[in-house]
Amino acid sequence: MSVINQASLSAIRYLLTDVDDTLTTDGQLLPETLTAIYHLHEAGVQVIPVTGACAGWCDHMVRAWPVSAVIGESGAFYKIYRSEKRLMHIGWYDDAELRRRQAEVIDVIKRELMPHYQDLRFAQDQVYRVADVALDIGQDREPLPQQQIRELLRLLTQCGVQARASSIHINAWRGDFGKFPMALRLLRNEFNLDDEQILNQVAFIGDSANDESMFAGLKYTFGVANIAQWLTDMRHHPAVLLEQPRGLGFVELADRLLEAR
């Protein structure tokens, strides 16, 4: 893993971050992690969650947390305030098309996977999703074995479904959206960044294989310590591996960014 120098850290103006097991610790947002987000916001670093989390949770995040925008459901949409009272929900496709594709994926899972995996179930937050489909692999159940997760990902891919595993869900969808493509769209359309600014002013922090497109696409990338279990399944790794896990790893990076400023 490389080292990112202080001059590079001081130029970072946008910190994109995964949520589950990157911001959260055992499903909770620690007070020191939330404080770190506030400190970054106050210092002029715009924090933007990029998550597989459902639209319902993303709506809460953009309203209640000191963040500049939220990308949700693995890149299906973003939410942003364009004025104090004008919250916008911008989808990769229009709402009807997202719902149509979501229904197709649900049908595939029920027809091709569930008859063969009797303990497979949708995440409890599926009802609050507008685009993707989430399978619970460790959120409200004992974690599935890594080999079974790999097999489910393979089967979904064979069925023409995009699928990525986070620490708690398999997120599945049909379409050409993803975390990194939507991040580029957001940064260009809402913050007016060009390619050079994206390269030099944007960083990302994540924890699992479903963050791989972000690690591949951006220059300044960080992995919290708990990403170690996923590295063998990934072609593209974070540039820097932090010492602390989960929400404390986010605090570790926040401290480095604030010190550099």
Score class of each variant (00 low, 15 high):
S2T: 05
V3N: 00
I4P: 02
S8I: 07
L9A: 03
S10Y: 03
I12L: 15
R13T: 05
Y14S: 04
L15H: 05
T22Q: 01
T22V: 02
L23F: 06
D26L: 09
D26E: 14
Q28T: 11
I37F: 05
I37H: 03
H39V: 04
H39F: 14
L40A: 07
G44Y: 05
G44V: 04
G52F: 03
G52I: 00
C54I: 02
G56T: 10
R63T: 10
R63L: 04
A64Y: 07
S68R: 11
A69T: 06
V70L: 03
I71Q: 10
G75V: 11
G75A: 11
L87D: 09
M88L: 13
A96W: 11
A96C: 08
L98D: 13
R100P: 01
R101P: 07
I106W: 14
I106V: 15
D107V: 07
K110I: 08
H116S: 12
D119R: 14
D119K: 13
D119M: 09
L120I: 12
D125Q: 11
R129E: 12
A134T: 03
D136P: 05
D136G: 06
R141A: 04
Q147G: 14
Q148E: 15
E151S: 15
L155M: 13
T157A: 13
G160N: 03
R164D: 11
S166N: 07
W173F: 14
D176K: 03
F180I: 01
P181R: 04
L184P: 01
L184G: 03
L187M: 14
D194T: 07
I198A: 09
V202Q: 03
A203V: 08
S208C: 13
N210F: 02
F215I: 05
G217M: 05
F222V: 01
A225K: 06
A225N: 05
N226R: 10
M234D: 09
R235Y: 01
H236V: 01
P238I: 06
V240D: 12
P245C: 01
V251Q: 00
V251A: 02
V251N: 00
E252D: 06
A254H: 03
L258P: 08
L258C: 08
L258E: 06
L258H: 01
E259K: 14
A260C: 05
